[in-house]
Each structure stands twice: as C-alpha cells, then as structure tokens.
Design a protein around this nucleic acid. Structure first.
Lengths: 205, 205
DNA sequence: ATTAAAAGTTTCCAATTGGAAACCTTTGTT
DNA sequence: AACAAAGGTTTCCAATTGGAAACTTTTAAT
C-alpha cells in the first residue's frame, strides 16, 4: 500500500468482516410482483420470454437465475432489476399532514424572488413546495444559472414568465402552464409582464 | 386506491413496448470495481469465494453469472448488487425538461375527478404533477379513503374544497391554500362551492 | 360431487455455468 | 535478450440452469 488516505481493501480484511447478506428472497419478490400485476406464470412467461417452468423454479427458490434471465424478467415486468431483490421500502407512513393557508407560509426574500415556503411544519418530507413572486426581469438579474441537486416542477399562477434552461431555447409560460426539469441543468425564470409573476414551485429534497 | 391514475400492466401492453434494456455491461463494471480496489483476479477470487477463471469469464462477458454468484461478488467486494450493473450515477443530471401548456396535459377521467396529467414526457421522474377538477361533493362519492404510497402536496387553484384526512378534522381550503400529507393516511377532497374546484397535485413516485 | 379447464409443479435433458488446471501474456529483473 | 513470476485467458468437465412436456393441484361450472 502506498499512501492512500483511505484504507484499501485487502483479502484479510474481508475474510473477517461479514457484510449483512442481502437476505431478500429473490423468488418471493418475483412472485409478489407477478401477483401484483395479476399475471399467471403463463402470461409472465410471454412477457419475459421465459418458460413458465423456469419462472416457477425461480419463484420457489429452486434455481438461481442468471443475470441474463434477471434482465429478461425486469424488462418483461417493466421494472428495474434491483426491484427483483429489494424490498419495496415500506411507506414510512408518518401519518402527518400540514396545511398552509394562503399567505401564511414562511417568507424568504432575495433580490430576484419573494418566496413563501409552504408546509414547513413537516421536516422529513420528500418535496419542498413554495410559492414565489418573481422580481427578475432579465437573465442578468441572476448573474448566472441557478443549479442544484434534484428535480423541479413549476406552475405559473399569475402573470407571464420566460423560462430559461440550459440547452433549450427560452420559453414563454403563462397562467396554467407548467414545467418539469432536472435542476442540475441551469435554470432561471424571469417575469415578462408588467407586474411580478407568481409561481408555484415544488422541488425534490 | 380505487381510482388508479395509471393503467395497470397487461400482456398485450408489454409485448408492444420495448423497455430500454439495461445495456450496461456487467462485466465491464465488475472489472472496473476490481481495478478500483487494486485487486488481481486471484485476490478478488479469495474475497468473493469464486474461481479466478469464473471472474475472468464474467468480466469478459463470456458467461452470465447467476444471482448467487452476483451475491458473492457484491458481498466479497463490499458493495451493493445494483452497483454491479449500474453506472455510478453522476448526479444523474438527465438534462431534460418537459413543458406542459395549460390544458394540454394528458386527460384522465374518473367519476370523482377530471385529471390532467402534467409533464408526462419524462418517465423516470421523482414527482408526479397533475391538475384536477374535483367533482365529488361528499365523502360518500368516494366510498372509502384514498390511500397509496408516497407523499402528496396540493394547492387549491380555484373554488373551495374540504380536505378530509384520517385522524384529522375535515378542513376547508380556499384558493391559495395548500396541504402536504403522507398519502398512506386516508385522504379525500370534495368541492364545497357551487362549481367544481380546481386543484394542483404533486405526488412522489 | 364430477368434470373440464386453468394454474402451478416436477421431471427430463440439452445448454450453460463455474471450478481446476493448463495455457498464454505481460511485467520486471538480471 | 532471457528468464521468472504474476496476471489473465482458455480448456475441459462436473454441476447447475432453463425449456418442453408430463404431471398435480386449484378453480370454475354444471
């Protein structure tokens, strides 16, 4: 070993420590998925291009399917391969809700926007909704692209705006129009009407 | 949920549409991971409990390993199985966007709602936005609670509604009001004004 | 209850995988 | 350059998978 910052793997290392083995039954999972789609082995066979006997054996853990077969399975059932052996993480049913009356959100001001954060009572949520008045009137009001992790959905509530996104032509949006984009792609919204535009935004956390 | 928005799978369905096949080379990936850890086939063999000939053949795509072997591989190299065939997601910047002009979404009708699905061009997205006219005028129009995986955000665009959620008192919402809740908690929205209410909904996938 | 059809399991065997060892190739040393 | 050693590939074969068809169980209908 040279001077690695992080210890690299060694044979000895691993022979010791046990990694918590993926103890999910691939078979159980496949069967569950098939049942969820109300398919018989015959039908699933048609979809995946596999013999129903093969499917039966996989479901009953009598054989360990090859990767090629797993690909056929996933493609045929229209799912991703990991779903074949990963438990569908059970809804963390928080059983909570949070209502925000109009105008009662948490304000957050910037030169270009006047944000009103919604649903701020729930901390662990997967989406971040907020409503914003757009002050910006030109791309230069931002200086540069806005860019961050996650995906973003927006809906125009009032006014008219122009949505600038990297790689695309600027697009005019009016009340009721919406857009969905990868937020890592540079993006910026400016108001093109006389008054400020009002936008609803939802971002993934 | 009784009123599914998305159609369920059928045999006919799938025989038509091709799912973009995971065209990642499992072999390339395995080799890359082994190299990253500065392991020889011999060493990797020790770690995983597989013959170096087997590893060689897997890396060169000469054989399709069984799931059992993939488990050994993952355990031995101390990674998760999906990493064996998934490119290390580079902030998965899809670099895509999808704009839906007002009224141009995909319609979906139920007795209680008139949905307009937004941003349907992007398939792998994390949020599902749609705009709905609420026909329902009483809880009984639904028969039972609506309940499903994920979280839900809603914003009232027009009209007045009453939001029923399990464990909470019904709440009146008017234009601009919003709510965020765990969708596993029973929920239902009814219009309380003379005309149908219009709601924006965003659900996690 | 009986029968027919559908769904699922098991058997049998050809095709493919996985391991041991032989066989190449590359790297490093003199 | 020649050699040795390490790393990697290919061969050969036993073990296992995957498909076709036989067989058993379940469901539905009379």
């Amino acid at each position: 070993m040279t001077t690695d910052i992080y210890p690299s793997m060694t044979v000895a290392d691993n022979e010791q420590k046990e990694r918590p083995v993926e103890k999910m039954q691939l078979g159980k999972q496949v069967k569950a998925i098939r049942k969820q789609n109300n398919l018989t082995l015959e039908e699933a066979g048609k979809l995946t291009g596999l013999a129903r006997s093969t499917l039966s054996k996989i479901e009953n853990e009598q054989i360990s399917p090859t990767f090629a077969v797993m690909q056929k399975l996933a493609a045929g059932l229209n799912i991703d391969i990991p779903q074949l052996f990963t438990k569908p993480e059970k809804a963390q049913a928080t059983g909570r809700r949070d209502i925000t009356k109009s105008g009662q959100g948490v304000p957050h001001l910037t030169p270009t926007y006047e944000h009103e954060l919604l649903s701020t009572q729930l901390s662990q949520k997967k989406m971040m909704p907020y409503r914003s008045r757009v002050h910006a009137r030109s791309f230069d009001d931002y200086g540069d692209w806005v860019r961050h992790e996650g995906e973003e959905f927006l809906l125009v509530l009032e006014g008219e705006v122009e949505l600038y996104t990297e790689f695309y032509e600027p697009t005019k949006l009016t009340v009721g129009d919406s857009a969905y984009y990868d937020a890592m792609m540079g993006h910026v919204v400016i108001s093109t009407s006389s008054e400020d535009a009002l936008i609803l935004w939802v971002t993934t956390s």
